[in-house]
Write a protein that binds this DNA or RNA. Structure first.
Lengths: 336, 336
DNA sequence: TTGTAGGCGTTATCAC
DNA sequence: GTGATAACGCCTACAA
């Protein structure tokens, strides 16, 4: 069974009272130096660890920050976690990681868990199928502040930090225009995703601003699978009107696009240029990467959300919901 | 401040005693059905969440399993985490994730944290620079069982689960021999890693068993960086004796090798065949992947370690340290 | 079927 | 400088 060295154990061994031990362990100068030293020595020797029960009973700060991410297999979120851990460690906080696996039930379980564990605050990037926000409200009412990042709620006001997706998409269009390209297709993500809408807006703004070719047949929405990308390319081919360039929803879609093109006898970045979104590390492994990808700076996103959260935790009065936008940059991959 | 609905709150509202409430919440049939229903209803309405403090004070099971992994950016470990979470959820356990970032101090912090939080057990894959095991012993003595997986301690007996690395390396050599190849180089990892030693053993066994060409110049140990791989390839080239095939420490080294070869005007898998270890998802993204990679079945590794840990948690008497080996399989990538 | 009371580990508030 | 005690939320003998 689990060992149990308590303050009482130390007090008994040293023939002093529990309060003295408690104070000594906290370095209280009202306690004599000798006593303090003896207590701390014995505590170390016995491997004393304070029982966390008291923290919960007294309703104190737990110095735990919960984070809910859709999936750890997405390096984007791991990057954010890494930077947050580094930031929180010196502050004495611990980051408690939970993944929702893109599943709303799982997300609710995470919230219940964090509520039970009395975390001081929660960072959350929403599961893609999120429909209800009542559990979030409940947790907020319970007194735990929540800040959303990257995948943020729609239709309700919240504390959130987002990437400037629209602006990123627009930059891509500008880049392509400057390369002399006029006919760009968009292979977008599922329509129900916020960020798909943002990319579409940026794309359309670009088409208009730079007077590029405009046609509904250039705008495709795909499931995030290789098969559905292949379908789209087949459509382009059979319509005998290949766009000069394709702007893809993210790096994975770009990858699927390359495979699809090769399948159909097309050469990526030659028969059609590929521009992508995300700038994930794996694309630097490719022999023939997209010519450009949008860097979202996940670290800045994470840090900004954390800053907002810590402010909420520290402020006594409730703050007003607001959101922050993180700018993107293009990363250009030089040819061969 | 954090809301606080306690058993007392409910008891007062319902004009009954706290013990009745407590029992009703646990579905104790000694309490009248009506009372039980009323209590549970009100609890739900008030969003009552039991204060975890009591669990700690009473020294009960926390239903928390801690896991320490070197880094979440390695998909290998994320795969393990995913399968463990799925396994543990129905059992009512929660997996608490901690990364050591390959840093022994961080690993010790994780152990201290898990000890403080009274987890029921710990799964650990060691940080590569681990020198001391005293903290592990302390935690075990405290009463928390530990099971190691993949990266296990050397020199001390422990509960651990490992991949059959030696056997995997041997299988690679057999595969190459069957392709008619006789001269195979090994680009191994740092000598201080256990698993480097295992790969070397498998390689040497293969060389002997299949009567392949044997030479110290075929065995290289590299840091896990592109530069050091490039150096090795330069050596091969300048010695004007390219091996027919190279067996690399892992998929990343294989990737570095490909880049190095292209840099030097060599064509991967043509001028030298590449055999790799790990079978990480990203290699299926490559246009010209290694001809073979060793699948380690991270899921089996994780589940096996978990099984061992749960047995330890449930068994009243201390068990004897033992270790388990998980077999590997070759995954062959057909040529385009 | 329900109520009372003591205890878990720690700390804050008094008292000396 | 130090000690005694109540309080936190919950559970569980023991009472009724």
């Amino acid at each position: 069974m689990k060992n149990n060295v308590s303050i009482k154990t130390i007090a008994d061994k040293l023939q002093i009272s529990m309060s003295t031990v408690s104070r000594a362990l906290h370095g209280n100068t009202r306690i004599g130096l000798k006593t303090r030293e003896k207590v701390n020595e014995l505590a170390k020797e016995l491997h004393y660890v304070p029982n966390p029960g008291n923290v919960y009973l007294q309703g104190k700060q737990t110095y735990e920050i919960g984070i809910i991410v859709p999936a750890l297999k997405e390096e984007f979120f791991v990057k954010i976690i890494d930077v947050l851990e580094n930031e929180l460690r010196p502050l004495g906080y611990h980051l408690h990681i939970f993944q929702s696996q893109e599943n709303e039930d799982c997300q609710i379980r995470a919230l219940d868990y964090f509520k039970k564990m009395r975390v001081d605050g929660i960072l959350c990037s929403l599961a893609s199928n999120t429909k209800r926000y009542d559990k979030f409200l409940e947790v907020e009412e319970f007194g735990i502040p929540i800040v959303f990042f990257d995948r943020t709620p729609r239709g309700i006001s919240s504390f959130s930090v987002k990437s400037n997706t629209e602006g990123g998409a627009l930059k891509v269009m500008e880049f392509l225009k400057n390369k002399g390209i006029n006919k760009v297709a968009l292979i977008n993500g599922p329509a129900n995703l916020d960020t798909s809408g943002d990319r579409l807006n940026g794309y359309l703004m670009g088409v208009e601003k730079f007077r590029m070719e405009s046609s509904p047949s250039l705008i495709k929405s795909v499931a995030l699978t290789p098969e559905s990308v292949l379908e789209v390319v087949k459509e382009f081919v059979s319509a005998k009107c290949l766009p000069e360039a394709v702007f893809t929803f993210n790096d994975y879609i770009a990858l699927y696009l390359m495979k699809a093109m090769k399948n159909l006898g097309l050469e990526p970045n030659k028969d059609m240029l590929i521009a992508s979104y995300g700038n994930l590390p794996f694309i630097s492994h490719l022999e023939n990467p997209p010519i450009v990808s949008v860097e979202q700076f996940p670290e800045r996103l994470g840090l900004s959300a954390l800053e907002m959260l810590l402010k909420r935790i520290d402020s006594e009065e409730p703050m007003k919901p607001h959101f922050k936008m993180i700018d993107t940059e293009l990363v250009i991959y030089p040819r061969g």
